[in-house]
Design a protein around this nucleic acid. Structure first.
Lengths: 140, 140
DNA sequence: TATTGTTATACTCTATAACTATA
DNA sequence: TATAGTTATAGAGTATAACAATA
């Protein structure tokens, strides 16, 4: 192992930063944070703005704005909670699912193309790494 | 393998985005892009603004500004090139190395802490994944 | 009083377009 | 003409602080 843990941390962060920048201006259908929110609602079906903010590690006002934009475009639906009228349950609309699908295809073209140059072992490694990072990010 | 390639691409991107956000407001000594530039100059010793822009996948004006800020703070030195007077060779200063070291310690505290919960095999996986991503980002 | 969500405001980082100087 | 770097300007995404409505 040529890497100490602090170096590893720096290398991972550096790679992630560049990847995010690289992919950011790749697709035009959906900006990255809209994309991420729709993906959550596609998996979870119903979440509040606060839950989404926590999941994406973004402030409440920031998520409120994102959610507002998505609702304006008709990609998500807001349903006030019956039992707790402060809460607003969010779900993805049919249009939202469509745009998500289109966005996925467009956004990931570059990366899918790059992943084709990987060996099956390398794909396994990336798959495992994504799972590990997910776990690390979930805690704390 | 439960993942198709497009799903893998999406998962990796998602994990990277959240990691970048998580780490962004972790340290206060150095903003992320200043940090990245100093790290490049620490490794490479001498680079131009254009080279740094390409390395970080950022526009020339954006890097020009970052470089200007770092120079104002005395963290990097600008030496006009003798043979081509348009070029300005950039190198990290002693102060720059110090702040980089301090920044690394501060910035990576959270991640180093998280990495302690990983098994040696998981650390290997992350190490390999960072290398693979570096390679993918280098091409195109 | 505490919590969910919003509005108001400002900051950071980025981009494109237009400019200066050297090649 | 082309290239390295800068300045001018604008936009996207984020934050904190202060607010409304509900618990």
């Amino acid at each position: 192992m040529p890497n100490t843990t602090p170096e590893l941390a720096a290398n991972i962060r550096s790679a992630c930063m560049r990847l995010v920048r690289r992919v950011r201006y790749q697709g035009t259908t959906l900006p990255p944070h809209h994309f991420a929110v729709l993906a959550w609602l596609d998996r979870r079906d119903s979440m509040t703005s606060a839950e989404l903010a926590a999941a994406e590690r973004v402030s409440a006002p920031s998520m409120s704005r994102t959610v507002g934009e998505l609702a304006d475009k008709g990609f998500i639906e807001r349903t006030p909670d019956e039992s707790d009228k402060r809460r607003i349950n969010l779900s993805i609309s049919t249009e939202g699912r469509e745009i998500l699908k289109a966005g996925r295809k467009e956004r990931d073209t570059w990366m899918v193309e790059r992943l084709k140059t990987c060996t099956p072992e390398e794909l396994d490694t990336l798959h495992d790494a994504a799972d590990i990072l997910d776990r690390l990010l979930q805690e704390h």
